[in-house]
Nucleic acid binder design. Sequence first.
DNA 1: CCGGTCGTTCACACGGGGTTCACCGGAACG
DNA 2: CGTTCCGGTGAACCCCGTGTGAACGACCGG
Lengths: 120, 120
Amino acid sequence: MEAAQSQDDVLYAGELEIRPGGGLVLAGGRALTLSVREFGLLVALVRRSGRIVSRSELYTLVWGNELRDGDRSIDVYVHKLRVKLETALPAWAFIHTHVGFGYRFSPEASHVFHNSTTSR
Amino acid sequence: MEAAQSQDDVLYAGELEIRPGGGLVLAGGRALTLSVREFGLLVALVRRSGRIVSRSELYTLVWGNELRDGDRSIDVYVHKLRVKLETALPAWAFIHTHVGFGYRFSPEASHVFHNSTTSR
DNA sequence: CCGGTCGTTCACACGGGGTTCACCGGAACG
DNA sequence: CGTTCCGGTGAACCCCGTGTGAACGACCGG
C-alpha cells in the first residue's frame, strides 16, 4: 500500500491538484468525484509520473495484495479514471498505455482534431 | 536472455535515455512508445554499443532461443526501431548495418540534406 | 426495505504486436 | 555482365493485450 504521507502535501500535474491526505482532486479548479479505488490509483500513478508502472505494481500499491492472473480490475479502473479526467479536462491526456509494460502518467496535450481556431 | 540489472540503472546514448528496468525510452526528453520486442532489441544493442552484434546473438538475447534459418524477425524489428528512432531524432543514426556480420549501435550524426537553417 | 454507490467480474470489441511472406535494390562474386 | 546473396521494406495474417459496456452482489444511508 502507499506509504503514509504528511496530511498536507499536495501533488500538481498539469491542471490537476491532488491532496492525497484529503482525498481531494481539483481539475482546473473544479472538484472531481472519485471513488476510493480511483483516487488511490490516481495518486499511485501521479507519484510515479513519467515512469511506466506495471499492472502488478499498481495493484499491489492500491489494492494491497498480489494481482491474480486474469484480474482486470486495473484496466477497468484506469478506464474509469480516464473518463472522469477527460470529462473534466478534454484537452489533456494523462494516462498512457505501454502495451506489454503498463501505464505511464504524464500530462500531455491530447491529439485533438485541429478545428482551427479560425474555422468558420 | 538479458541478465537482470538493477531496477534503476539508466543507459544514455546520444539524445537517448533508456531505463531497462522500467521499459521506458526518452528521446530528447519525450517518451517513446516501443513494443516489448523493440525495447529488448534496443537495450541489447545499446549494452553493446560500438561493437558489431551478430543476428544470432541478438536473437538469443532478445527472443531467448536460437535463431532459425530463414527467420527475418531481426531485420523487421531493426527496421521498426530505426523508423521510431528516426522519427523522434531525425538528425541521428543509431543502428548501423555491417553486411554479413550484424548490427552495430552508435549514435552518429545522420547525413541530412542541409536544408539550411535559413530555408523558407 | 429501498435506492444508490462501489468494487468485481464477465463478455465482447478492437487495435497493437509478433511472425511470416513477397518483392526489391544493392553488394558481392564469378 | 549475369548470377547469387543479403538486407530493406511494406503488407497480410492471427493472436493476445487492452478498451469498454454491462451485470451482479455487497454495502450503506435513508
